[in-house]
């Protein structure tokens, strides 16, 4: 029992009640698992391991959800086991999918002498730089890793400038202004204020103007080099309204995303662990 509960009879009772409920839940979980998965009477070892795996997966899932009641040691154990397994998986795939195919096999398993020469020509420098990166682990020689970082950071920065200018700036600016011109010039020849006129001409123009006003006002809201007074304040207020609508939309989507994850877990528990077929 935790020391801080020793002198509080209410807490002591609560502690024992919680322990009792936990033990009961554990018994129920095992009983249900054995009933639905029946790992002891499977046709072969693979089926048995699958059943045990599903019980473990369900147990870990429910343990994770115990956090909703309160942070507890079982949750922490599951969480740390997850971190460990993910770490082990990463270690294996650093080898299997990175160092082995890109470094080890081309050099140590080169099929021909010329293949080895080609591999050495193309890979010697990055391998040396890669080892320089590992000097980060040494206090004395850690500075050598700066060359590796310099190479990576310099390359990434140099490459980012043209590509980001193109994708984030030029293409977005182009998209912000061209629909307006297109909407006006390619508008169908329909009588003004008719339904077709609203849908075909006025609608796209208004929509494009809304986007343009929104983009400009949001940019202005984040532009702090001038004081937001009078007209400036009005523009930045419009920017705030646009931002709020967008944040609201993003919040709506966030709720949708998180619930989808929950639905996924519920589907797993009911479908795979409890084997209740969906109607």
């Amino acid at each position: 029992m935790p020391d801080d509960l020793q002198d509080n009879p209410k807490s002591i009772i609560r502690h024992y009640v919680e322990m009792g409920v936990l033990a009961l839940l554990l018994v129920v979980f095992l009983a249900v698992s054995l009933w639905r998965q029946d790992p002891l009477h499977q046709k072969d070892a693979a089926a048995t391991m699958k059943a045990i795996g599903l019980i473990l997966a369900a147990g870990l899932t429910l343990t994770m959800y115990s956090f909703l009641y309160r942070d507890n040691p079982l949750f922490k154990i599951a969480e740390n086991l997850y971190v460990g397994v993910a770490l082990g998986y990463m270690a294996m795939f650093v080898w299997r999918q990175a160092l082995r195919p890109m470094v080890y096999e081309p050099i140590f398993h080169a099929p021909t002498w010329s293949a080895l020469q080609t591999a050495l020509l193309h890979k010697t420098v990055p391998i040396i730089v890669g080892f320089m990166l590992l000097t980060r682990l040494s206090r004395k020689h850690g500075w050598i890793s700066r060359y590796a970082y310099a190479l990576m950071i310099g390359w990434a920065a140099g490459l980012a400038i043209p590509n980001i200018t193109n994708t984030y700036i030029l293409k977005q600016l182009y998209a912000a202004v061209t629909p307006l011109q297109q909407a006006i010039t390619s508008a169908p020849n329909t009588p003004a204020f008719s339904y077709d006129w609203f849908v075909g001409t006025a609608g796209p123009v208004v929509g494009t103007l809304v986007i343009l006003i929104g983009t400009v006002s949001v940019l202005f809201y984040f532009f702090f080099s001038v004081e937001h007074k009078k007209v400036g304040r009005a523009v930045s207020t419009v920017g705030i309204w646009f931002l709020m609508v967008s944040f609201g939309a993003s919040f709506g989507y966030t709720v949708m995303g998180r619930l989808s994850l929950l639905i996924g877990r519920v589907q797993f528990l009911l479908d795979e662990w409890l084997k209740i077929p969906s109607t």
Binding site: A157, T165, Y168, A176, I211, F242
Partner: peptide, 29 residues
């Protein structure tokens, strides 16, 4: 909502992020 105000804001943010990323890259270089 998604196609107009949301798009306008995200585009504004993209322009801001793009300019900041370019400025940061130049500072690094």
């Amino acid at each position: 909502i998604m196609n107009y105000p949301n798009l306008a804001v995200k585009r504004g943010l993209l322009l801001g992020i793009g300019l900041a990323a370019i400025a940061q890259s130049v500072r690094v270089l």
